[in-house]
Each structure stands twice: as structure tokens, then as C-alpha cells.
Design a protein around this nucleic acid. Structure first.
Lengths: 346, 346
DNA sequence: CGTCGTCGAGAAAGCGCTCCCTCGGGCCTT
DNA sequence: AAGGCCCGAGGGAGCGCTTTCTCGACGACG
């Protein structure tokens, strides 16, 4: 019969999809170097022993063809993607961009890449984004997750190596890396108390944030210093700090503990406008020590947190988790009080 | 013969690798739903028509098994990863974290994820990182790349959809999205000139940065305003601005144009320390309008750049590029002068 | 001189998914 | 009533790589 042609009729994809430059594959390299695919793979991964001459031929072919292995194919064959997912509440917040910066540097040293997602401060989408990240990554870093405990638990149950930054959830068997907000705020309170302050206003941070909870916990511990604390709802931005000016003045406090440096700087600006002298009439403290804290007038008393440190420690911890190291302990990083001009005696 | 056993002896991977929870695959779902793999795939992707009853059974099975498609396998089969690579010089710089934030939001709307890399202000590694990103991504955004023109060209030649932010390279057939630094600085110069300033000092930004080049270009154009400009090497950080204080005073200029707001704020702090009144003795301007610019004393005259806008426009442009839309035009985004208290009449 | 061990290299089986193609059955047309 | 269509569903060939496993050649050893 004349129709003894093979059953497979469709053209290969490269020909179909309209002449785009077709991908150079490992097979192309093998052909060019007159070697087998396996050999090319071995050269690529430095595995086993390959005759130096052959290896050089392969490397040459790779160079000439401009070959780059497909990440997807490698991922599929190896069973891991070589990527790590990071979920943050707000990429624009320097606290988190610092974290990502050092974390991804650390990941890079281990040969991994970082896929970033931003929940936009919406705890409702965190779960979904985290699950999505799991599809792409071999491990996950959740930075300051605000999601309910139960959802965190569900994520842990997925079996993907998971590390949490700045949140603790006792009884959940999750490894965490945290900044010691509690001790930091305690130090701040001690400092203010020593200066003679008794009535203190606290400009609270975001609802549901562990960082804020820890500060509040320290504040109630601060009764020991003889401080009387008024909590004022505020937030985490400069604008919110600026807006809190009048409320602060009304509170009749002699010192203000702001949620963070942004809030403090915003408030400082408002106070200056209002003609309230700092620290003459009112002492002011921040938290997190952003770069600009030293450069305000007066310079801001604040608490320095290990900025790069968090990312690096997180990188190490997650790497060990991913290596199957089960018993990783949670870490709490120490902070440091920075006394500057914005706080003074009563 | 007794040895008529099949040739394949090795156990499946799941059994080998020590009892880790083995991945749920599409085949498992198909089995559970008593459907074919193709059908599950169709339900998953909403392609073609599937009997509603069957589809529900499939969805149920997916739910019960907690199935999530493997990104690697999808990527390999589809020929695209669904990820977009972004390379920035410094993740900790709010300019870039803002960009990434809006860009990734835009990517997410299109169903794509973002893989981020940070060159740490080292132009030498940009090329390598960009090539690495290409393995993982279907498209690339290079933010303010400092790499030599030639390397940029090589990257373009790779054939991966490429978008550049804040850099132009005439003749290179690359699409770019830029902020109009030139007009911004011109506006600043006009403003200062109008206030009666003649001697102006410019605190220059990073070497090789296009943003800095554009500012310098505007500065030489500013001769038209009758300005005499002294260029002082500086940088892009608050610290560097602070350090430039003495040099600025020595320059005998009556106005200082800082590379950006950080530099300006650092300088402002130093000037305050030195007892130089702003704007009484010296006018000061920044660039980029960071949040804190409004809150310094005096508030900073600066130029507002479209922060989120850049990311969004870049997202759109890259999406079109990736869709095969060849003739995408480069875009230059307008800026806005913000006159505040730090600049005044001579 | 024969045999075992070693080492380098190739063949091929997946990895989990997409998507083209084929097939079967119900419905409409003539 | 017979043929043609259309539509829903399954089969199976890749996608590009890793990783056994197998094989051939060669040197060493008894």
C-alpha cells in the first residue's frame, strides 16, 4: 500500500509556532559535540567522570550554541525547583525589602532563587498566595504573616519546608525567626522611666501584627517601671504618625513610644508644626532604626533591629529545614537600644 | 527460564526516597474521579467542554486529595514558566522596591509570578544574573541596569522579551520605560533660577547610572537659566549626603541640587548641625519625593516621580512584548515639581 | 592467557503535565 | 433509514532534563 506512512503526522512544535527562535536543547549540544545527552548532562553537573577531551568539546559546544538548560525541565527531572518562595505583607516597607535582600543573597549562595509575593497587608489572601508559592518553590518563608493560626497550621500540614519570620504560634510545630521586639520595647521603657517619665503614650501598630502584640506585652510588663501607658490607635506609616499629633498632645503624656520610626518621624514633624518642643516638652522614641533616624532633628531615640541579620538567619534556618533537618529551633534575635536626642528628662 | 522477569528492576522514586509524602499527581486525581488525565487537565484549565457531572467529580477529587499542579511540569509542557524575572541594583532602595511591588501586582493580574534578583549595585554581575533569570522566566525587566551597552545588546539578542526601566540606549532596539529625569531637573533649575539663584551645586549620584547622566544633561541645559553649576561627587545615600556638607559650604553656592531625597535629607541634617540655615542661607532640593520629604524641617522641595506608575506601565509594556507585540514604543513618564520650604529666594 | 574489575559513555525510562488526535455515540439531515 | 456531524472523553506523544542501568574496552591479577 502506498499509505504506509508513519502514524504521527503533526509537525514538531518548533515548526508550528511560527518561526520563533527555537530553544537550544541538551540534545543539540550533544549532537554538536558528538557526544551523548547523558555525557552533556554529566559535564553540566560535574557528576561522574568524563574524559577531559570530550568534556572540553561539550563545553565548547555549549558556548557556541549559547545553550542554557531549561529550568522547568531540570525542575521536573530533579523533583525540585531550586526556588524559594517569600511572602511579605508589603514589599515597599523597608523592613521587608531589607529582609528579602539579605535572604535572597543567602539563597543565592546556596544556588537558589527567590520568588516574591506581596499580600498587600491583606491577611485574607495570604493563604492563597502561600499555596501558590508552594507550587513554585521548594521552601517557603512567611514574613510577619497575619493569617489566623488555623490557616498557618494548614500550610504547615502541606509538608513543604516552612519558615516564619516575626511571628510565633506556640504549639504549632513551626520554626520561626523573630526579632526580640519584647526586649526592645522593654529597654525603651526602662530608658524613659529612668529619665523620670511616668505617663507614656503608645502609638499602636497594625492590628493583628505579632510585632504589635509583643510591644503591647512589653508595655504591660512595663508597669514594673512604674509607667502608666495610654494606647493610641495609629498604624505603621509616616502619615499616620503625623495624624496622631493632636491625640498625643491631648493624652497629656510626657513621652511617646511610637510603633516604629516612620510613625515617630511623622509625629515629630507634626509636633514641630504645633510648636511642641522635643524632647523639652515631650520625649519621643521610635523602633527599627531606619537610616534617617539619625538625621532628624532631634535625632531619634530608637531600637536597632538586625536588619540584614534576619534575612541571613532565616536563610540558614530554611536551608537546614529544606535539607531535612527536623529539629531546627526557633531563633530570637537580640536588639539594641539607641539613645539619641529625641528623648530627654521630664 | 525462571528469570523471565521484566528488565526494569529499580523501584519508583517515591519508594526510594525514604517515605517522604509523595506528590499527588494529576493521574491520582484522574483515578480518584474515575476520569482520564486529559479530562482532569481540561477541568483544571477550563478548556473545551466537560460534562458538568464529571467536572464536579474531578473538582471534588482535587479538593479531597489536595492536588496542586506542579509548576515545573506545566512549565515544561506549556513551554513557558509563567514567571517574569526582575533585576534591580538594590532591593533595599525604595525606588526599586516600589517598582517591584507594583510590577508584581500587575504581573499577578496577568497570572504571572515574579522572580527577583539583586545585583547589589555591581554592574559586573548584572549580565550573569540576567541570563540566569532568563532560564526561569518568560520575560525580563531590567531596572536601571548599569551594564555596558554591549552586554545589554547581547541580552537582547537572546530573544527573550526584555524591558528596561530607566535607561535608554539609542540604536539598540530595546523597549524602555523611563522617568523623565531630564524635565524634572530642568523644572528644578527653573525654580531655583526664578528665586534668583545663580551659583548652584549639584551632588552627583552613582557613576554610570542613566538617572545621573540625565540630570547632568539637564544641568548643562540649565545654562539657559543663567545657572552656574558646580558638580560635586556624592552618591545616593543619606550618609553620603551628610558627608557632603562641608564640600557644599565650601562651594559657595546659594542652592544645592541633590541627586535624590535621601542625599538631600542627609545634607539637611549636616547643615542643621553646622548652623547653616535652610533656606535662609542655602536652598536645597531633592528628587524622587520619598514619603519623608514632606516631613523634614523645612519640608523638602523635590520632584515627584510616578512611583507605582513605573511598575504598572512596565507591567503593561512587558505583557505586550511577551504577547509578541513587536512595535512597542518606549515610554517616558512625566514628573512633577513639588515646591516646599527648603528652597527660597536668595 | 583467561577472567574479573574499573571506568567512561550511551541508551532509555521516567518526572507531571498539555494538547493533538482518535474514537464512539447521539442527533440531525436528506 | 442511512449517512454525516458534532461533541464529549480517552489515548498517548512529546516538553527537556536527570539518572539509573547496561555495555564495551582496557588493565591488572592469578
Amino acid at each position: 500500500m502506498a499509505m504506509a506512512e508513519p502514524r504521527r503526522v503533526r509537525e514538531p512544535r518548533s515548526a508550528r509556532s511560527g518561526g520563533r527562535a527555537k530553544r537550544v536543547t541538551i540534545a543539540d549540544v550533544a549532537r554538536a559535540a558528538d557526544a551523548s545527552v547523558s555525557t552533556v548532562s554529566r559535564v553540566l553537573n560535574g557528576i561522574g567522570t568524563v574524559d577531559p577531551v570530550l568534556a572540553d568539546r561539550v563545553r565548547l559546544a555549549i558556548e557556541e550554541l549559547g545553550y542554557r538548560p531549561s529550568a522547568a525541565a531540570q525542575g521536573l527531572a530533579r523533583g525540585r525547583s531550586g526556588s524559594i518562595g517569600v511572602l511579605v505583607p508589603d514589599l515597599a516597607n523597608p523592613h521587608f525589602s531589607d529582609l528579602i535582600k539579605t535572604f535572597s543573597a543567602s539563597a543565592r549562595e546556596r544556588g537558589a532563587r527567590v520568588v516574591v509575593m506581596d499580600s498587600d497587608e491583606d491577611p485574607g489572601v495570604e493563604r492563597e498566595l502561600a499555596e501558590e508559592l508552594m507550587r513554585y518553590a521548594d521552601g517557603l518563608l512567611l514574613a510577619s504573616p497575619r493569617m489566623p493560626r488555623q490557616e498557618l497550621a494548614a500550610l504547615v500540614a502541606r509538608g513543604v519546608p516552612l519558615l516564619v519570620a516575626n511571628r510565633q504560634e506556640p504549639g504549632l510545630a513551626l520554626t520561626s525567626v523573630c526579632v526580640d521586639f519584647y526586649q526592645g520595647l522593654l529597654a525603651l521603657c526602662g530608658h524613659l522611666s529612668q529619665l523620670g517619665h511616668r505617663k507614656v503614650a503608645y502609638l499602636a501598630g497594625p492590628q493583628g501584627s505579632w510585632a504589635n502584640k509583643e510591644r503591647l506585652r512589653a508595655l504591660s510588663g512595663a508597669r514594673a517601671f512604674g509607667l502608666e501607658v495610654t494606647v493610641l490607635a495609629c498604624g505603621s506609616t509616616t502619615d499616620e504618625g503625623y495624624g496622631a499629633g493632636p491625640a498625643v498632645v491631648d493624652s497629656a503624656a510626657t513621652a511617646v513610644v511610637a510603633y516604629n520610626d516612620f510613625v515617630a518621624l511623622g509625629l515629630l514633624s507634626r509636633l514641630t508644626e504645633m510648636g511642641v518642643r522635643v524632647p523639652g516638652e515631650l520625649s519621643l522614641t521610635g523602633f527599627d532604626e531606619i537610616d534617617l533616624a539619625r538625621y532628624s532633628s532631634p535625632p531619634l531615640t530608637t531600637v536597632a533591629v538586625p536588619r540584614g541579620g534576619l534575612g541571613r538567619v532565616a536563610g540558614d534556618a530554611l536551608a537546614r529545614l529544606m535539607a531535612g533537618d527536623e529539629g531546627i529551633e526557633s531563633v530570637t534575635l537580640p536588639v539594641e537600644l539607641r539613645v539619641r536626642g529625641s528623648s530627654g528628662p521630664i
